[in-house]
Write a protein that binds this DNA or RNA. Structure first.
Lengths: 204, 204
DNA sequence: GCGCAAGATTGCAGCAACTGCAAGAATTGT
DNA sequence: ACAATTCTTGCAGTTGCTGCAATCTTGCGC
């Protein structure tokens, strides 16, 4: 009976898939706890496996690298931005559309504040994790640039979309850093909005 | 006699230092050749050591990671930018000063075209090298933001200098990518200048 | 020139991330 | 209940990178 309730609520996921998600969550939780307690580098994959009650080998069927545990839902975030971007009216200028898309992500961040701060803190203090996040962001830049190129019907080699994408990500990154440094007192969407405005108005 | 000539020309470096630089160069050359021939990942440090005629262990007294061979003089480049930036008149607006500083680096790049293209090509096709370069650039961003903060006498928590630094690096990166993609036909300084202008004029 | 101090190279042993492979266990549809 | 599919796991191996201690090379004062 419990089962039938769950199934009806959870949109009919098989036992397999449900277990998989549970396990993934268990690994994440165990890993983040260990990273906070002992530091990222001092925590081995074997440690995580022990804490999450799986075989060490199994870890790598859930995450490609140790770093990716910290950045678990980065990929989903990009999808979100691209979707928002594509839903913006075609007549809107590229930069305004970007600003709107990033505003929703900033709101997401703000809503999941505590979750994210734990992860960002690990990221900010662990070079290898930080490097991995930059690598993922570079992938975002490519995708965003492509999306903008298509949106604005620019020539394939026009550098403008890429510059827009790069500037937007830079604004987001600078804003996040400022948000964390100032103890996340101001609301993140406001900071991000201000950064975008500053770039829109020109830096000269 | 050859020796005495060399010494007088090379500003009197000791035998020790000269040998060190030769060896470093030998490692770099051997490594880049192997990377191009077989790919970065398929080349082991042992391979490089063998080709450069050193012990494997010695490699790591010259380069902290395998990736750093490809990015050998990245650090020197940052010094260059910061020095240029500090020599700009204090009255000049921050963005204009940044533009001038990056213009000289763009000219350097253009001058060392062939050398750099080999390295950039490896970088662009090897995720781990690319990640490492982003990591180094993040360090630049910190240094540049600090320099600008001091220059403009901004409050320590003012996000503007960081935004400027991030935007400048984004412009440089986007320009470089465009330069490479278009077969480095246009002069790099021109591309970089245009990107800076675009940001100066505003993206709105 | 000679010998001693400083610095560089090297070999060894070891750790940890990650991979391919194949055997065994669980889950699924019938 | 059985067969097919998929997932977990153990094993063995590769590679990057590190600390340490021995050995060799260079620099320098005499």
């Amino acid at each position: 009976m419990l089962k039938s309730v769950k199934i009806s609520v959870v949109a009919e996921l098989g036992l397999r898939e449900r277990k998989r998600q549970q396990r993934r969550q268990a690994i994440e939780d165990a890993a983040i706890d260990l990273f906070e307690a002992n530091g990222f580098d001092a925590t081995t994959v074997d440690d995580i496996a022990r804490a999450a009650d799986i075989a060490p080998r199994t870890f790598f069927t859930y995450f490609p690298t140790k770093e990716d545990v910290v950045l678990a839902d980065y990929a989903a975030r990009l999808d979100r931005i691209v979707t928002e971007l594509q839903q913006r009216p075609e007549t809107e200028p590229a930069w305004a559309a970007l600003q709107a898309a990033f505003a929703t992500v900033a709101a997401d961040y703000q809503a999941q504040r505590d979750q994210l701060i734990r992860r960002f803190t690990i990221m900010a203090t662990t070079p290898s994790v930080f490097a991995r996040s930059l690598q993922l962001q570079a992938g975002w830049e490519d995708t965003l640039a492509d999306t903008l190129t298509r949106r604005t019907a620019a020539e394939p080699n026009d550098p403008t979309p890429r510059l827009h994408a790069a500037a937007a990500l830079a604004a987001m990154r600078a804003s996040l850093q400022h948000w964390l440094r100032t103890g996340h007192t101001q609301p993140l969407p406001k900071i991000v909005g201000a950064a975008f405005d500053q770039l829109a108005d020109g830096l000269g």
